[in-house]
Design a binder for these strands. Structure first.
Lengths: 108, 108
DNA sequence: TTCTAATATAACCATATAGTTATATCAATA
DNA sequence: TATTGATATAACTATATGGTTATATTAGAA
């Protein structure tokens, strides 16, 4: 399990404002100036949220004249769904831990 | 979209240690004392992580003598997968926002 | 009952996060 | 070129987070 990539995406999603941005962008792409009045927080705050989403590859931007249009990338969402739907089998890790003496037995 | 419930689960998952605990518990249930040496952090740190997971209903505990055995609840994972797989249609919200004059048009 | 082992909670600390205001950047237009 | 409007970045602040050590709780064993 690529814990790092997954954590980046999960952290990006784990905020109500960003989650709602994702939902809005799922319906249609928006520019920054549209999102500002919707959420009632400052424009820099929205920009930072979008930057966080972009860093997780959850959104893409295209400049259109004065505006920057953000749109949703669904692949990271599908990645999360895939990993959570089929968590890795850690049996081998348990065996390795046992071999390393890291696995305490507690009679369960 | 119940943003609050989803955010609680996502925040609980958005940490490498907790994500790995979830993966381990997916393979088999563990007591706290097994997890401590695996992650190389203090017992209270593990307890706090488990408490965070429990608060999101991602794990259940049963006491077994001196030990507390933690096991994975898969329902919250399925909930996340379901929501991310079918994000709500926000078309009505866009209409409402437009009616409230909150939707700036930027010619896209 | 006393002692020991497993777990949870409290108090604390350093860093991350989400917001703010001020300012810089950049594209369109006068 | 100068100005304006949209967005990004910088600097800052308050709170949340993830770790620590110390201590309380709880169950079993002596």
């Amino acid at each position: 399990m690529d814990s790092g990539k997954l954590v980046t995406i999960l952290k990006a999603l784990a905020d109500p404002t960003r989650l709602n941005i994702v939902a809005l962008l799922n319906t249609r792409s928006c520019c920054v100036c549209e999102l500002v009045p919707i959420f009632g927080i400052s424009q820099p705050a929205i920009s930072k949220h979008l930057s966080r989403l972009k860093q997780a590859n959850l959104v893409s931007e295209t400049r259109k004249g004065m505006w920057v249009i953000y749109s949703l990338n669904r692949e990271p969402l599908e990645y999360v769904r895939a990993v959570l739907g089929e968590l890795p089998d850690m049996t081998e890790d348990f065996k390795r831990l046992e071999a390393e003496g890291l696995l305490v037995s507690c009679d369960d």
